[in-house]
Simulated assay, not measured.
Amino acid sequence: MTEAEIATWNELVRDLPWLHSAHRLLLRMACRLSARMDEGEVGVESMKALSSLLSKLGATPVDESKVTHAGDDDEDAADEFFGKPH
């Protein structure tokens, strides 16, 4: 992944604490599209794809309301993968 994609990954992981290892492919796709968007290299179809991915990840206000947030004390095996502190 590029530096821009990694920065987006870290931002999304921080903002979406419910993500776990099963989300990694969707998250990677969202990072690629987001980085391209920041560089002004995306068209309407790519923007639609990014919007769809963000929705599937629960990263929109409407979709986040449907996400069940785990308590802060819950440990997830994916925490190490997503860089969350123990």
Rank of each mutant, 00 (worst) to 15 (best):
P61R: 02
R32T: 02
A78Y: 12
H69W: 05
D63C: 05
K48Y: 06
E80C: 08
W18V: 04
L19W: 05
L27T: 03
W18T: 05
E5F: 03
V44A: 11
S34K: 11
D76Q: 14
L12G: 01
A77S: 15
E39L: 15
V13F: 03
R14F: 08
D63T: 11
L19G: 02
L12F: 13
E3W: 02
L54D: 01
L53R: 04
S34Q: 11
S55M: 09
V42T: 15
L54C: 05
K84H: 14
H69A: 09
W9N: 00
D79E: 15
E80A: 14
K48T: 06
A4S: 10
S46G: 07
L53C: 04
T2G: 08
L19P: 00
N10H: 09
F81Q: 10
C31I: 02
E80K: 13
S46P: 00
T60Y: 09
R14I: 00
D72N: 10
R28Y: 12
E3Q: 14
G71C: 08
S51T: 13
M47G: 06
V42I: 15
M29I: 03
S52M: 07
E41Q: 15
W9L: 05
T60M: 11
D63M: 11
L54Y: 08
L25E: 15
G40V: 11
S52A: 11
E5H: 03
V13G: 02
L33D: 02
C31Y: 04
V44D: 09
R28N: 12
D79M: 10
D73P: 01
G43R: 10
R36A: 14
L12S: 04
L33E: 03
W9E: 01
A7W: 02
D74M: 13
L19A: 04
A70M: 12
R36L: 15
K84R: 15
H23P: 01
G40H: 12
E75K: 14
D79A: 15
D72R: 13
D72V: 08
A22Y: 03
R32M: 01
V13T: 09
D76N: 15
S46D: 15
S52P: 00
D73A: 12
A22E: 06
E75Y: 14
C31W: 02
A22M: 01
A22F: 02
N10I: 01
S52D: 03
G58L: 03
K84Q: 12
D38A: 13
V44R: 14
L19K: 02
V44Q: 10
